[in-house]
């Protein structure tokens, strides 16, 4: 496999990680919460996508439904389980999310079983570039990267050009100050949760189209998402995107650059990068205070 080919795979992997990492980091910025249940939003999205594709809906509807349904389900879970414990602090919130993750993951397995579900969106067309040594891309990969780019633009416009987005950023910096200046805190909080869960669902549909849906698929991605968000500087949406693409490319490149036996350790390399970053520059790429003493 050539380096260029692996680079393309890296962009694809980075894309769905990035979509999810933005959502993860939005929640972190809002309530200081490491949401261990975040991976489950990807799973929910993928299963919703499977059901939608199975009933013959067009691709756009599959993606849209994955976003909307996951946003609704995720928001309900928040209302039921997270909001009552927000005041107890970050660690009880983290442990609660572990519990919610277990419940959702196994709830899905209870109803759907362990078998893989394939999202049928038609056979992808493949484009080969013989000038570049047989490098190829297919339409599924283009779909993932294209959707990711549109999502980045949308989130960027939301955060910078709308009053809601400006209020979101203000609340992240200082909630009391934002409240005094007229931000409707509860409404903004709800919106952030809806957006974050929806993005998780969208990432899940894309991952499901790339591979398949299974009860543990989201949980398996959780640590990489978490690593991407931390790498970018927890709480920063732009940092999360950068972190996700760095990880995606590192993971896929390590397949060719490392000796065969170690090359399965792509994600391991990602975590090594993460720990190294935490040690050298604990605030991630965008820089934030994360040490105490």
């Amino acid at each position: 496999m050539s380096l260029i080919q692996q680079g393309i795979f890296g962009l694809v992997t980075g894309s769905y990680i990035a979509i999810a990492a933005i959502g993860f980091t939005l929640i972190y910025g809002l309530v200081n919460m490491l949401n261990i249940a975040y991976g489950e939003y990807l799973t929910i999205g993928a299963y919703v996508g499977f059901l939608a594709a199975d009933s013959g809906l067009p691709l756009v509807a599959v993606l849209g439904l994955g976003f909307v349904a996951t946003a609704a389900i995720g928001w309900t879970l928040t209302k039921l389980f997270f909001r009552p414990v927000v005041e107890k602090g970050p660690i009880p919130l983290l442990i609660t999310s572990v519990g919610v993750g277990i419940v959702v993951r196994n709830g899905v397995r209870l109803f759907s079983g362990n078998e893989l579900r394939y999202l049928d969106v038609g056979q992808p067309a493949v484009y080969r570039f013989s000038a570049l040594g047989g490098v190829f891309v297919n339409t599924k990969q283009l779909l993932v990267v294209g959707t990711a780019l549109s999502a980045f633009v949308a989130v960027h416009l939301l955060l910078t050009r709308t009053n809601v987005g400006i209020a979101m950023r203000a609340m992240k910096d200082n909630e009391s100050l934002a409240r005094i200046n007229g931000a409707r805190v509860m409404r903004i909080r709800n919106l952030v949760w809806l957006l974050a869960c929806g993005l998780g669902g969208l990432g899940g549909v894309l991952l499901g189209i790339q591979t398949s849906a299974s009860p543990t698929m989201g949980f398996q991605q959780l640590l990489v998402i978490l690593a991407a968000a931390t790498l970018g500087g927890a709480g920063s949406a732009y940092g999360a995107v950068v972190g996700a693409y760095i990880l995606g490319i590192v993971i896929e490149m390590s397949v060719v650059l490392l000796p065969a036996e170690i090359s399965q350790l792509g994600t391991t390399v990602a975590f090594l990068v993460l720990i190294a970053v935490l040690l050298v520059r604990p605030g991630g790429i965008t820089g934030q205070e994360v040490t105490k003493v």
Partner: peptide
Amino acid sequence: STLRLRDDFLAIATIATAEI
């Protein structure tokens, strides 16, 4: 290397260790 990190980041660093 990691005990100086804040609570939640210590959690991340140790999760990553276990994964590695």
